[in-house]
Amino acid sequence: MEKPRALTQVAKAVALGISVLLVVIPFWSVIATSLADQQTINDSGGGMVMWPRGVSLAAYETVLSGGVVTRAVLISVGVTVVGTLLSLAATAGLAYWLSRPGALAAKPMLMLVLGAVLFSPGLIPSYLVVKEFHLLDSLWSLILPVLVNAFNVIVMRAFFQELPKELFESAAIDGVGAATTLFRIVLPLSKAVLAVIGLFYAVAYWNAFFNALLYIQSSEKWPMALVLRTYVVNQTTIGGDQGATEALPPQLPLQMAILVIAIVPILLVYPFLQRHFAKGVMIGAVKG
């Protein structure tokens, strides 16, 4: 391949710089506003600021003082960790089963998985299923209905099928069972796809609020995403035991502080998975 011309390299650098600024500037404005004092907010006309002249941690002290937001963060962390681990276990097990030639009922199950990609269950049937299993107002209603994502199963199955067949043949000759093969051979070689799928599940669990809105009635069980929606979108605070709310005056730094707290955990997780993520996103892109 020929070396790109200088003009092409400059154009790429400019385009990349603009893209980075479009991402960084809004995020920086959110952080700056969360740290701004009331005088800075008043001087800006009550809107977002780019550089706080007076730094104040009052908003973070308010939301992290052991109240609603702190409890919601702990709930979201628990749901995300437990849900991601269970989803990875279920997805890996199902994908491994579907990837093995001659597995019992693998083809009918694969057709069901493909059907789940094309057709999603309706809102009312999903609610009735959750109700029949007595999961309403339970944190398990945020995990079990979305435990397995069909698209993730297909991606992981494709990765398992690309592993060298000689590994499985050697394991079969040595008399190794399917479970041992999965845990001792397949999963150690699948760190890339596990990191990618795990990140997908973690982001989905952390950001999900609609299921909580449907299934959770008690406000003390609300996850962070639903609390964020209540504070930022509705500009209300949570009170009472059944999700009752009372009006708040606009408090922009408080809202931005909650937004930062909701975003930062995922941003902190990504650097640890970046090495595997860069490899995992190419799964299935190149054959041979």
Results as ranks from 00 to 15, higher is better:
V176Q: 02
G177C: 04
A178G: 02
A178R: 13
T180E: 02
T180Y: 05
T180C: 05
T181I: 02
L182R: 07
L182H: 11
F183I: 07
R184S: 08
I185Q: 13
I185N: 11
V186H: 12
P188N: 09
P188L: 01
L189C: 13
S190I: 08
S190Y: 14
S190G: 09
V193W: 00
A195V: 00
V196C: 07
V196Q: 05
V196I: 02
I197R: 03
G198I: 04
G198N: 08
G198R: 10
G198S: 03
G198M: 15
L199H: 07
L199I: 06
L199C: 03
L199E: 07
F200N: 08
F200T: 09
F200E: 05
Y201R: 15
A202F: 14
A204I: 03
Y205L: 03
W206E: 12
W206K: 14
N207L: 11
N207P: 10
N207Q: 13
N207T: 13
N207I: 09
N207A: 15
A208L: 03
F209G: 10
F209A: 02
F209H: 09
N211V: 10
N211A: 11
N211K: 12
A212G: 12
A212P: 14
L213E: 10
L213V: 05
L214F: 12
L214E: 11
L214P: 15
Y215R: 12
I216W: 00
Q217H: 02
S218N: 03
S219Y: 02
E220F: 14
E220I: 13
K221P: 06
W222V: 03
W222C: 14
W222F: 05
P223W: 00
P223T: 06
P223V: 01
M224K: 10
A225E: 05
A225N: 01
